[in-house]
Design a protein around this nucleic acid. Structure first.
Lengths: 179, 179
DNA sequence: AAACACATATATCGACTTGATATATATTTG
DNA sequence: CAAATATATATCAAGTCGATATATGTGTTT
């Protein structure tokens, strides 16, 4: 999904500054499925304002740098609904970990095992975070759906790695001995 | 993984032209975990040649545009091993589908159901392709590992969507009726 | 109380990636 | 035989990413 529509979507859930939109990508319900940096968000918000899809109110707080609160307009809501009706583009998954696993025979067995354990640890941490998120009080059906999907996928990954890591490390050891 | 290392990794499995490297991202064992376009591949190959990590042999075939066959050098193999020893960067998953599902209440029920069925169809197709790939004769342990991981994840996604789609569509219908 | 790290907040910049397009020819398909 | 598809390289505008700069409040440690 393009950044402008993504910003509109986040603003449809409540007013926000650019900084708060960025935080939503880090902690919020989007954190596993979308991302954007300041270098994308600020220009996108500027264009949305120029197009009349959001309004900006500068709230200069005592001392702190003035927060620019963005609010979605009726035209913005219409643009969002239109964008959501377009056919979705295919998902994109980029895995540095799996790429390295394809070349396991070029990694030392010790380092290979450490890489696998680090990945398992990261995945288990992600599961705990998502489980806590799911427990929180007022979770909407759509968020529950997406959250549950993420949990299923992460658990499938953990189970698979636990079941097959010995196999991969063993094969790598044999390949090394054969050289 | 950066494009230069990715090209080196592919060339470590055999000589290839830029076009053949691109095809590897579409069909080969990388197709679900990495991607790159011509606009990334050709400049990367040029730099690798300048750095002495690959050699280029122009094979002018009768009529056809001359194929530039790239081969990895010993220095290239060392650079690849060094890069694989670096700590891996976190995986990145971008899902247009799940993003849309988070805003299911802004999509018409008919279109929502069609989107979900299209996604299921795509996922089932991907599973069939990967199962065929796994059946092929001489699959290496590392490829088997990565392929099996992909299958597990895709199956988990299909199962989850099949089990929860009614729930999501139902909740959306209720939300629409409440307005 | 000073020093330090961290959170809030906006903004920009170079380097890189993406997707589209141009060019040219061989082969397959309807 | 014409059209579409596959082979093959290359470039470009537009967009994205990661790092950095700026400025201040808050909490924590020595």
């Amino acid at each position: 999904m393009d950044i402008k529509t993504t910003c509109l979507a986040i603003l449809s859930r409540g007013d926000a500054s650019g900084y708060e939109i960025k935080k939503t990508f880090e902690d919020g319900p989007f954190c596993h499925i979308q991302d954007a940096g300041f270098g994308s968000i600020y220009p996108a918000l500027g264009q949305l304002r120029d197009d009349g899809l959001v309004t900006v109110t500068e709230m200069s707080q005592n001392g702190r740098p003035g927060k620019k609160v963005h609010a979605i307009t009726p035209a913005g809501r219409m643009a969002l609904v239109d964008a959501l009706a377009e056919p979705s583009v295919p998902d994109r998954f980029r895995s540095d970990f799996l790429f390295r696993m394809l070349f396991a025979h070029l990694i030392s067995p010790n380092h290979l095992e450490a890489t696998i354990e680090a990945r398992l640890s990261d995945l288990r941490e992600a599961v705990v975070r998502m489980e806590n998120c799911a427990c929180s009080n007022t979770i909407e059906p759509s968020e529950k759906f997406v959250n549950g999907m993420g949990l299923s996928v992460y658990r499938a990954m953990i189970d698979y790695i636990e079941d097959h890591k010995i196999e991969l490390i063993g094969a790598t050891l044999l390949a090394g001995a054969a050289q």
